[in-house]
């Protein structure tokens, strides 16, 4: 019996969270699990908060994760990690990219970007924070941020590394494969 595992991926529209959830979903089915991936399309992809859910196990019903239900939160941006905190299961794990992107209320001066988010998260949860942007640049493209973060997440699952790499190979365009493989390894090494 495999109890359902719930992974929540959050970020800002345009950051590539969708690819991350698709790769995760693709890796999971190779192990024969039942899986549901809830995606976001449409308006919020235009630079808004985006949330995708991946749930897998023997039999999965709900495609969404409730508050207090996420085993892992993978956050592409600090503020989005903070926003997602109530969804974390007690004892769950937060993986976060240290990147900060000001949302419009901050840009217009109506509100401030919260301070010391990483510290606040660490006070209540098990947190691993990395600078995925720098690692992506090291891998060869800042666009590979999402794959760096997938590498970071990989160790939080029972999916073998080869399965991840194979899924990446079949998901990304061949010409970006080298960059993405490198990006995965760099993220994986940080976990």
């Amino acid at each position: 019996m495999k109890e359902t595992r719930s992974i929540m991926i959050v970020g800002v529209g345009g950051q590539g969270t969708l690819l991350a959830s698709r790769i995760l979903g693709g890796a999971v089915i190779r192990l024969g699990y039942d899986v549901k991936v809830s995606e976001v399309h449409g308006m919020s992809q235009r630079g808004g908060s985006v949330v995708t859910y991946v749930r897998y196990g023997d039999r999965v019903y709900s495609p969404i994760i409730d508050r207090g239900g996420a085993d892992v939160i993978l956050a592409f941006e600090l503020l989005e990690a903070y926003r997602a905190l109530p969804w974390l299961k007690p004892g769950g794990k937060i993986l976060v990219n240290r990147q900060k992107m000001d949302p419009m209320p901050v840009i217009t001066g109506a509100m401030q970007y919260p301070e010391r988010i990483e510290e606040k998260l660490s006070a209540v949860a098990d947190v691993t924070a990395i600078d995925a942007l720098a690692l992506a640049e090291e891998a060869g493209s800042i666009k590979a941020v999402n794959v760096v973060l997938i590498g970071l997440m990989a160790k939080q699952t029972d999916i073998p590394k080869e399965v991840w790499l194979d899924t990446i190979r079949t998901t990304v365009p061949p010409k970006f494969l080298d960059v993405n493989r490198k990006a995965f390894e760099l993220g994986y090494a940080k976990a």
Binding site: Q45, G47, L88, P103, Y113, P114
Partner: peptide, 20 residues
């Protein structure tokens, strides 16, 4: 009651969609 969850005490800025 729902599963216990951590509350965020401060009001954090929303992130509505924006023009790219």
């Amino acid at each position: 009651d729902p599963a216990p969850s951590v509350a965020v005490e401060e009001t954090i800025p929303g992130r509505p969609p924006v023009m790219c």
